Simulated assay, not measured.
Amino acid sequence: MKIAVYGATGMVGSQIVAEAARRGHEVTAISRKGAPVEGAAVVRSADLADLDAYREVAAASDAVVLATSPDRTGGPREPYIEAHRAVAGVPTQARIYMVGGFGGLRTPDGTQIKDTSGFPPEYKGESDAAWAAYEALRDSGLDVTGQAPAAVIAPGERTGRYTTAVGVPAAGDSISSQDYAVALLDELEEPRFRGTFFTAAN
């Protein structure tokens, strides 16, 4: 499978590249600086807002993984949302796979976690932007899957074991970035959650 990963140098993106390469897939690693990523067959410098580059990438790929994040330094998050809205308007046969946020999942009463009173306010803007980006992709008519992490995601151990759920938190409070990538590649290889917003947890 030919897989392109935007945000390939990040904590999650780099693990996705590594896991895909480990399974024998051909990976194009895309980042703003075009930095080398272990396991990538091709390294490319591009921003998601560069639609000409995105069209080329999508046309040459079986799946495009969007592992970028909204601004976390206090800057505007609208460019992140607009980039996803623009991507949503590009026709492609590639499967679009978005690394989403835990805040987009829902509580038993249907409230999104990002909108609950106990959600950390410092993460609210980031979660709102991530969900708006996912909505744009989801409503595009393209083949889109979103995968949220557990409440906590951090580098750790690759166990290959995880639980899943659609739209609501899975059993487990955390997941390693390695096992997040395992769940993502499992889904790309043997789809069970196509067209959904699902999550995986250790």
Rank of each mutant, 00 (worst) to 15 (best):
A170K: 08
E56P: 08
Q93G: 14
L137M: 11
E56W: 08
K124W: 08
A130F: 09
A46C: 04
T116H: 05
H84E: 10
V87K: 03
L105F: 01
F102G: 02
A165K: 04
Y123F: 15
Y97Q: 04
I96V: 14
S61K: 05
A8D: 09
E122M: 14
P70M: 04
E78R: 14
R95S: 10
G146T: 11
R77S: 11
R23W: 10
D109W: 07
Y123L: 15
I96R: 12
R23A: 06
A94I: 05
K2L: 06
S140D: 12
A46D: 05
A21E: 02
A58R: 00
W131T: 09
D62P: 00
G103V: 08
L51Q: 14
D139I: 09
T73H: 14
G39T: 00
A18H: 00
Q93R: 15
R32Q: 05
H84F: 13
G13W: 00
A53V: 06
D62R: 09
V5P: 02
Q15R: 15
A170F: 05
G7E: 06
F193K: 14
I153T: 12
S117I: 12
A67P: 02
V182S: 03
P36L: 05
T199A: 04
E187Q: 05
G118E: 14
D128H: 11
A60I: 04
A154M: 14
K2N: 15
L142P: 03
S117P: 12
R77Y: 09
V182M: 01
G100K: 09
K114I: 10
D62L: 13
V65W: 03
V57A: 02
A170M: 04
S174A: 15
N202D: 13
E189M: 02
I96K: 00
I96S: 00
A181D: 08
S45H: 10
A41W: 10
E78C: 10
G39N: 04
F193R: 13
Q15T: 09
Y180F: 15
R194L: 12
A29E: 01
V65T: 08
P120T: 11
Q147L: 15
P120N: 01
T145D: 06
Y134N: 00
S45W: 07
